Simulated scan of single mutants.
Amino acid sequence: MNSDPTVTINVDLFTVSLLLASLLFAFCLVLAKRKYVFLRRVSGSQLDTKKLLILSAATACFLRIMSFVGVIAMDIANVRAHYSLAPVSSHPSEGQQTTAIEKNQSFYDSAMTVLFDLPNAIVISTYVLLTLVWAECSLLSRLHTESSVRWRKKWLVWYTIFNSGLYATQIILYLLIFAGGDSVAVVRNIVNVAMAGLNLTAVFLVLMLYLYLGVSFSGYPFRSHNARESIRKISKVMLFWSLTRIVWGTSMLIIYIRDVDLLRPSQGGWAPICFLLLLILCEISPIIILMDYSFMTIFEFDRAASTRDMPEMTSDTNFIEQAGHKSCAAAEPLLNDLP
């Protein structure tokens, strides 16, 4: 008689989707690590906005991986306190105290909600930081008399203010989730609406900055054709990130309106696949495009703005000087003939 215990692991579509997403985020993390090592080797250990952008993207990938691994582990494990927003006892009798199972269930629901939503804020912060890098490149792409250092300091101050408000909002919402007790479902809906609002607000602020810089520096010419093409390439990346943030924010609103619970695999259907596709479109693809499509353009923009234009400016100056000498030489016989 075979008395060996058997272990059964149930893997559903929800778990498979999170596992695939984790592998894709791990690929993005490897890309970010390579780019950061390259920046340190080329420009030293001094921290600037470009290195901070790579670190922010890497942090978002790492948090996504850890978040999904935690959710996968709890989903595969045969735990009694499975995720369920419905309390164990909806109508307790008079004088009955909340049982330990109900407390554990409430904490489990709150922890799963926070774990699943945790990386959303760092993705928004990465998007705003990319906007600052684009703004610096936009400033360097034109010939003007403005101080780039002064503009950079101003943008960093506003970035710090935005980040402080972003993470403060996230912390307050998470505290409400743990303090909400049986109202975890209500607070979860508030979190979805808040994240949708933060994404759309970030896109609106980026649009305002784009219009402001466009109006303020529209009268200044580009340093060169290369500078114009480089800033156009970076602007395409910014546009793609902005569209993905709009799609993500709109999706969060749809999830709230239709009362979809992404953490409840028992619902079945195509919700896990749709969530995986949403992650690929709105987070994984933008990071890959940032690392592979526009990384060298962003990194070499300072050098391009300061070195590529020097031969052109020098050749223009030589042309003017040569034209002046020729004009003087042609006018010299006429001057000699004057009485």
Rank of each mutant, 00 (worst) to 15 (best):
D117G: 08
S141Q: 02
M74Q: 09
P87F: 09
D117N: 15
K103E: 13
R150L: 12
T113N: 10
L118E: 01
L132P: 00
S90G: 10
I122G: 01
S106H: 01
F68M: 08
D117W: 13
Y108S: 09
L115K: 03
L139P: 00
P87H: 02
T131R: 02
A135I: 15
S67F: 10
L143F: 14
F116M: 09
S93P: 00
L118A: 11
C137V: 02
I72Y: 01
T98R: 13
F107L: 15
Y83L: 02
S90M: 12
A77H: 10
V123Y: 06
E94H: 08
V88I: 11
L140R: 08
C137K: 07
M74H: 14
P92E: 01
A81G: 01
C137P: 00
S67I: 12
I101P: 00
S106E: 10
S89M: 09
R142V: 12
L129V: 05
L140F: 12
N104T: 10
I122T: 11
A111P: 00
S125I: 06
H91N: 11
A111Q: 11
V69T: 06
R142Y: 09
L85F: 06
V114Y: 13
M112D: 02
T126Y: 05
T126C: 04
I124H: 03
V88T: 08
Y108F: 12
S67N: 05
L129D: 00
I122Q: 12
N78M: 10
D109A: 14
S93C: 04
E94C: 02
L139V: 04
L143P: 00
V128D: 02
G95M: 12
R150P: 00
R152I: 06
S84G: 02
A77M: 08
F68T: 05
T113S: 07
V79Q: 03
Q105L: 10
V71L: 09
A86D: 08
V123D: 05
S110E: 04
R142W: 07
L140D: 03
S147R: 14
D109N: 15
S89R: 15
M112R: 10
E102N: 08
E102L: 08
W151T: 05
V79F: 07
Q105I: 06
P119M: 07
S90P: 03
L143N: 12
D109S: 14
T126V: 03
S148N: 14
G95A: 13
